Amino acid sequence: MYLMVAVTATRAFGIGRAVFRYAERLVSHDAVLRMLADTRVAVYRRLERLAPAGLRGTRRGDLLSRLVSDVDALQDYWLRWLLPAGAAVAVSALSVGFTAWLLPEAGAVLAAGLLAAGAGVPLLTGAVARRAEGRLAPARGVLATRVTDLLTGTAELTVAGALPARTAEARRADGTLTRIASRAATATALGDGLTALISGLTAAAAALVGVQAVAAGRLDGVALAVVILTPLAAFEAVLGMPLAVQYRQRVRRSAERVYEVLDAPVPVREPETPWTLPPRRSRSWSRR
């Protein structure tokens, strides 16, 4: 009967997972896209005051990258950092509490494993990818600048004989961006591998303390499967934390690039006390 309850619960959670995930995506993306729309409106209102005199030091391609790609990257702060981090904390707390209720030693083992995978591994991969993530947004801006200059000035560059050199510069910028993205992907792979290793070690340690508890008569034999399988399910919540930390670093650099434009001094300021127009009759007399 215990196993039938477990099988039925597994089926229910398997079906409900897709439903809950779909509902979560709908709610979270709707909220973030609304927030992103408000951000875009604020950015363009600010550009009305800055352009063109206030943006003379910014190239067109880099400005386009800041106001499109970097603004789009701001949504990752909520979707790919805060939401996974909150889910990881909630699931980890519930899993540790439930396992500790069954067997305190297994709860301690699970807490140590989740802490190592959910905090230690992201800190390590974040340190490895910090330099690459900080260079990713500027490299994307350089590539956009090279491509924009190449496409808008093709005729002039062809006449001047500078088209091959500018094409080579665009290819070099693309190669630089590819190498930076590869380094960031290496950090992600390192995080996934370390998380899988810690997950296996935690499950093995939970099985060890569980078997000892069953032998001592402190744990029912059927509950041993719960003690062993709960860590495997709980680690799924922290599996994306290394990537979430990388997105946090990436969003931070993109936000800095956006605010570098938005915080630029306004070239023409509105007067604190606007002048009032003279009466209509006086203006008619002045035109005469």
Rank of each mutant, 00 (worst) to 15 (best):
D263K: 03
R130L: 12
G193P: 03
T202E: 10
I198L: 15
T273A: 14
A31I: 12
L3I: 07
R287S: 10
V27D: 12
E260S: 11
Y259F: 13
R288V: 03
L82S: 08
G191Y: 08
T8K: 00
V268F: 10
R248G: 15
Y22T: 14
P104Y: 04
A18D: 07
A170K: 07
G153E: 12
V227Y: 04
L190K: 02
P231I: 01
A73F: 01
R288D: 04
A213E: 11
A88Y: 07
S282D: 11
A108P: 00
L243D: 09
P164V: 03
T154V: 10
R250L: 11
L239M: 09
L83M: 08
A216H: 02
A88I: 08
A170M: 15
L277N: 00
A119F: 15
L114E: 13
A18N: 08
W81F: 15
V68Q: 07
P271C: 03
V222E: 02
V7N: 02
V128Y: 09
I228R: 02
R80P: 00
A155T: 14
W285D: 05
V245R: 11
L50V: 07
P242D: 03
V121G: 08
T148G: 00
S69I: 00
W81H: 11
A216V: 04
T10W: 09
T8L: 15
R281F: 11
A234K: 08
L190Y: 00
T186I: 11
L55I: 10
V227L: 05
G221R: 12
R288N: 10
F98L: 15
V71R: 02
T148E: 02
G141E: 03
T8H: 01
E105M: 06
A264M: 06
L74A: 10
E272D: 15
A93P: 00
A18Q: 08
T152D: 09
R166N: 07
A12Q: 10
M241Y: 04
D70P: 04
A144L: 08
A100Q: 05
D263M: 07
A137K: 13
W81V: 09
A144Y: 06
L50W: 09
L177P: 01
L232K: 07
P122A: 10
V89E: 02
Y2Q: 09
G221P: 03
G200L: 09
G153P: 03
V96S: 04
W101I: 00
T125W: 09
G54L: 01
R250V: 03
A132I: 02
R288T: 09
V27W: 13
Y259C: 12
